Simulated scan of single mutants.
Amino acid sequence: MNNQPSKPLADGQIVLSWSDSIATITFNRPDKKNAITHQMWREIVHAFELIDQADDIRCVLMMGGGESDFSAGADIGEFDSARRDPHTAERYEQSNSDAFRAVRECPLPVLAVIRGICFGGAFGLAAAADLRIASHTASFSVPAGKLGLSYPADAMVDIVEAAGPQFARYMLYSARRIDAATALDAGIILSLHDDRDLEESALQLASEICANAPLSNRASKAAIRAALSHSADDFQKASVLGALTFSSRDYEEGRLAFRERRKPVFRGS
């Protein structure tokens, strides 16, 4: 993927780009506050499939296009057609769940880079990411109660893990808009930045992640997922990935670099 042109998806409403070992997924409807259409939900899954097929990607960023917002969440303007009755709502919700799962189960670290509004389904996507950083302009809301609908249960797991049970209840029951400082205090976001510094800070963090051994990061992500899910299958997967690190060339390189007092150069093998 390195040094290739960016790839537009969903008629350009999502852009997948990459630089060195960092892939970026951009929600590209700034005139609509980057609201996510039904087609975009499906193409989020496709974007992560393309990333998974690339051997040289080590970290993924998600962000909103333009200079104002991460995303307003699902495009409510489509609801009269795409979510008009129980049958269409079920299909729409499945596309939501598939997108959340693609973020959650990406084997690489995923970082959500948030400025402006991050509402509804977009908050679900951010919650499914491993890490979230934001600018002081960021605000968050889960307005299901104001729309008379519910979110998929798997998305709710992500929100509870991101915000904690009590604060997740507060956000869902009240549907209030939460500012960036409150989100930081609640642990929803990792750090706050000036708007002009946000992307640079994201790239710096992503570069630090990419400099570490890819197999170690994959094993760590799987182990954290197992610790949260308590799933026997997840523990088995984490165990296999952990064992692979000890037979890797990167493990040899890490030990050698330590002895030679230099920075290791990891190859992901």
Rank of each mutant, 00 (worst) to 15 (best):
G12P: 06
I14F: 04
V15T: 10
W18D: 03
S21C: 09
T24C: 04
I25W: 00
R29T: 03
H38S: 09
H38L: 12
Q39K: 10
M40L: 13
W41L: 14
H46S: 09
F48N: 03
A54C: 04
A54N: 10
D56W: 08
I57C: 10
V60Y: 01
V60R: 02
G65A: 08
S68L: 08
F70G: 00
A82N: 04
A102W: 13
R104V: 10
R104L: 15
V110G: 00
V113Y: 14
R115A: 07
G121L: 15
A122I: 14
F123V: 07
A127M: 06
A129T: 01
L131F: 01
A134D: 03
S135D: 03
A144F: 04
G145V: 13
S150L: 14
M156R: 10
D158Q: 09
T182K: 03
D185W: 08
R196Q: 05
R196L: 02
L198T: 00
E199Y: 11
S201E: 11
Q204Y: 01
L215E: 02
A219F: 08
A223V: 06
I224Q: 07
I224D: 04
S229C: 06
D233G: 03
Q236S: 10
K237T: 11
S239A: 15
A243W: 07
S247Y: 11
A257H: 09
V265Q: 15
V265W: 10
G268C: 12
